[in-house]
């Protein structure tokens, strides 16, 4: 059994620009109105890094920054887990398009941003953090896999972990092959149980969820978002945390990352 406390959450998606804005929507006290996505400029990035990083990286980093700001801490000593189903598909599209041209002129910046851990690299530089970082993927169950990796690290290595999950819809023509509804980024700051007073929730995670499937959301707009982005598969867990009451959620549909998560305030 994996146990950890959630200290803070950063959330950015269309219609929900912050965790604070998301709480009334996720608890059913306000309607979900999908709007335009606004990506705040991450403060951690220097102007030159801001130019060299992509919208994907900025979105993921902005979510991470929001979680740290809420917890009143910095990322200097945090182990990190970056979860993304597809990574930065915009960069993949640019590279594959360049390869169709004579002499195949790949941009060096696109090339270094094409690695799945590009955001992790930008984050480590910006946060001046030498702690371990992992970047992973498990298709639609990527968020669950990321939560398991982060939770396991908290549990057995007794360190705080910043989990950032982010997916952004690919551009045409990849969008037809890997459809995604909207961009979504969420960051959770996890600590060993009882090491921080103002926790949002305590989680007990078991990697033995039922084959009955993932929890769904009753709001059709939120449910469409949940199934329309691998990182948004976190929404049932986020809704349980926002509700501030004890409960259990199932996330992850893949047998390799099918979790039962008990949430208590």
């Amino acid at each position: 059994m994996i146990r950890c406390d959630i200290r803070s959450i950063g959330l950015i998606c269309p219609g929900l620009p912050s965790w604070r804005d998301a709480v009334p929507v996720l608890t059913g006290r306000a309607a979900y109105l999908p709007g335009a996505l606004e990506i705040p400029d991450p403060k951690l990035l220097s102007p030159s890094e801001r130019r060299r990083s992509t919208a994907f990286t900025k979105l993921a980093m902005a979510a991470g920054e929001a979680a740290l700001a809420d917890a009143g801490t910095d990322g200097h000593s945090l182990t990190s887990v970056f979860a993304s189903g597809s990574g930065d598909m915009d960069v993949i599209d640019k590279i594959c398009t360049s390869l169709m041209e004579p002499d195949r002129p790949i941009s060096p910046t696109h090339f270094h941003n094409s690695v799945h851990n590009a955001t992790a690299g930008h984050w480590a530089i910006a946060a001046r953090c030498r702690e371990p970082s992992i970047s992973l993927s498990a298709h639609d169950s990527t968020f669950a896999a990321g939560l398991l990796e982060a939770g396991a690290t908290v549990s057995v290595d007794h360190v705080s972990v910043l989990l950032i999950a982010c997916d952004v819809p690919p551009p045409f023509p990849l969008a037809e092959k890997q459809p995604m509804l909207a961009a979504f980024a969420v960051a959770l700051l996890l600590s060993p149980p009882g090491t921080w007073a103002g926790r949002l929730a305590r989680l007990r995670i078991a990697a033995e969820g039922s084959a009955a499937g993932e929890d769904r959301l009753s709001d059709p707009g939120l449910e469409a978002l949940r199934t329309g982005n691998p990182s948004a598969r976190s929404l049932p867990l986020l809704a349980a945390i926002a509700g501030s009451s004890a409960g259990e959620v199932s996330i992850g549909s893949d047998p390799g990352a099918r979790l039962r998560v008990a949430v208590e305030p």
Binding site: G87, S135, A138, A145, P255, A257
Partner: peptide, 10 residues
């Protein structure tokens, strides 16, 4: 059918 991950850190 155990826990399964792709790890992609270059």
């Amino acid at each position: 059918s155990g826990v399964t991950l792709a790890i992609s850190t270059a």
